[in-house]
Design a protein around this nucleic acid. Sequence first.
RNA 1: GGGCGGAUAGCUCAAUUGGGAGAGCGCUGCCCUUACAAGGCAGAGGUCACAGGUUCGAUCCCUGUUCCGCCUACCA
Length: 922
Amino acid sequence: MSTPQLDKTYSPHDVEDRWYQRWIDAGLFHADSTHPGQPYSMVIPPPNVTGSLHVGHALNNTLQDILVRWRRMQGRNALWMPGTDHAGIATQNVVERQLQAEGTTREALGREQFLKRVWQWKEQSGGTIISQLKRLGASCDWERERFTMDEGLSEAVREVFVRLHQDGLLYRGERLINWCPRCLTALSDIEVEHEEITGKLYTIRYALADDPAQVLLVATTRPETLFGDTAVAVHPEDERFRHLIGKRVQLPLTSRTIPIVGDSILVDREFGTGAVKITPAHDFNDFEAGERNRLNRIKILDLHAHIVSEAQFRLATKANPEVAAVLGGLPVQKARTKVEELLSDYLQEVAPHKMALGKCYRCKTVVEPLLSDQWFVKIKPLAEPAIQAVEDGRVRIIPEAWKNNYLGWMRDIKDWCISRQIWWGHQIPAWYCETCYGSPFLRRSSDGAPLIPSDAAVIVAKTKPATCPKGHSDALVQDPDVLDTWFSSALWPFSTLGWPKQTPELKAFYPTSTLVTGLDILFFWVARMIMMGLKFMGEVPFRDIYIHALVRDAEGQKMSKSKGNVIDPLHVMEQFGTDALRFTMAAMASPGRDVKLAEERIEGYRNFTNKIWNAARFLLMHLGGERVEVPAAQRSFPDRWILSCLNATIATVTHELEQYRFDRASSAIYQFIWHEYCDKYIEMIKPALKDQASEQAKTTRQTLAETFETMMRLLHPFMPFISEEIWQTLPHEGTSIVRKPYPTVRSDWDDKTAEEEFEIVTECVELTNLARLILNYPAGKRLHFKSHAKTDKLRSILNERKDLIEHLANIDGLMIGTTPETTMPHFLVLTRGSVDMLRTMEDMEPADLHKAKENVQKQIAILEKEITRTKQKLGNPEFVSKAPPDVIVDHQDRLNRETRMLNLFQQAREQIIFEQTKQQSP
RNA sequence: GGGCGGAUAGCUCAAUUGGGAGAGCGCUGCCCUUACAAGGCAGAGGUCACAGGUUCGAUCCCUGUUCCGCCUACCA
């Protein structure tokens, strides 16, 4: 019979493409709501449609794929729902850059044409990350792939918006929000990244209006906002300034005076000068202080974070004409420098100052607080149940350490600004009637979009109403803003399953089983999914949240270009194979620690794939011929041993996967395949396979095939490609490993006796190796040894395993004795645990002796040290009286072992010395 | 400012209940022994960040310190 032959080294390339295509063609990743298995479902954290695969994605999706492949093999109805999100700001940026290169703008194109362009772009380039996920082996149900801008998902968004509005959980109003002057849109609080910088703290003299000789010192980091000041605050109980409350100060560089107010919330008496300028239109704290003290808001910056035009500026701030002439239209950073110059007569001090600077998380532009009309989600009523769900364990966060992180954030959650001043996204389903309002809405100068006044009446509906409530039909204007991308992502676990329709999928797969994600989107996404899931499905969106470590991407932080440690997963897959990358990801996924990925490690696992490959080659070379299956208990010693080990590994891997310990699961597999299966088992069965026709060979071949086939199934979730490729060459049933059962523990494979005997065999082999080392024998030289066992049982084991020991230790003529023959000058004696190994001295090379003596000497020194330590401990009455008995016994055993070993080495040394003298004087 | 996590072999990381710390890569020595040199056998290498404390005994528990990272925050 002919067996397939494999190349000498594993080449992942064609294997990966070939199998992935076949899996897809056969529909193996498809989940059906009518499938009889217990559902196991996950939704993918939708990557940005603009994105491309980075190491973080690779980790995230590898772990998900391991879970879903494992559950699928367990017979569960496994659904992994894939898709992408429309990434409003990022995608719009990409297309706008294209337009810029063509010399046009989105405003020139108009909203409708622009959106067409974005869709075009999405069709052409939006699939990049999806194809990369496929490359990674992701076993998503691609037939169900979704996009947050799909019609179905868009309907879900409208439905949610309308219902939230009905329930009074949405409001529109003029608030100070975070504004990105480059993206020209509002951002939610968590879309602002804070960066610690050293800025300047300016101390400015504000003179009292009625007594210019008296000055109030005011500290600020933003002197340019001085023009928007509408008051100065001091602490009402501050003895230094209390008497000034109610008076006015002259605002420098302007003709305005502003009041001094008392505000105990805003002012920290200890900080700075104890007096704070209040700029309600440009600072969050000042905004609130402005509310408290009924202050005007003066806007001095436009949407681009430039000082408003000279005329506007003069009008609004009453700045001196020459000052307005200089500052009008300047970008805020330049304005600050200018103001610093202009203020020279008023500046008391400029000191370096550590502060946090908010930047747009998409484009890193410094954000500005901007007063504008925006939509908000009233979040507290949604957060309450989401807190409870985690508190009472309906949602488990793993590792649990992040639970407090989540709870802390949720308890202190702020209303969520959901409107974005961009075009790409779900346009807000709200309309306003110009007829009712009494006049046409203003048009935003930049793009012609209507600026809806704060007091315009809102009509919220899923589709454009035919008329307004008063019956006007011709002047309904839709809100030009779109919703935050995360608004639609928050619905992902049920919108992808067809909601608001009550689909069979929704019934079968919601709530999903597990969500695998990085900590970075715990708040952006996870928290919001829980809130929305509870609100609209009445049930948590997932049972377990597994939060994995962060692998920082090239953009930023952990992996930095300057360190040169950026790793591109595509490059890695190219170089080492997808399976090697996946296995690395799994092995590194220890909880609570960031993944710092070293390429050497991936290379190590590439070597592992090659090891597996070559083990398979060995198998195929020896599998020719009849195979006979007998019960496990009747198989050869190596067979019984490997079955028992395999069984233990199956138990470990399954248990660890249940705990989301991908690292332990993968290391158990690694340990088993390489060190038990390849190093030991394959070595042990070589003699049995030599005579192809023997009975021994027939049953061994059976075990070999059976264990390897099982091993491939065990490995498959981690290394889907090589496991399938090899599995196909082995005796097997079925068309693909993807849907074969995951191995389960079999009690008939358990064999403690075989494992114990194996320990003894290993001891003997290791002793011979040690002897070789000490005596400087080359690895290839065949030696004679004699062993001595203390008990009949041991001796019979040694007798039975004599051939095996000789084979593994590469020795000849092992003699097994009853009594130790330690008389000089015949033997060097070594012991470990239960067996002594004796080596005849007679054929030793003269040159060995000096080095041998040194080695032995070294061993003696080490042992003496250890013995002293152990003796000390056992001699301590406190230890003997207080330590648990088993610990004491353990120490006594140790002492015995060490002492015996020492004696033997001492004898060995004497023997060597004896030999030396004999050689020197023949 | 507050909170959390980390500091273990040259490097990247493990070690679930406090009883002499492991892996991979790298390094050293010897081996191309027909599955695999992307390999085999063996070896070196660690006051488990620092200082105290609890304990018969601490990498592990407690306190403090230093350094690093992350999250969070309105100290102008």
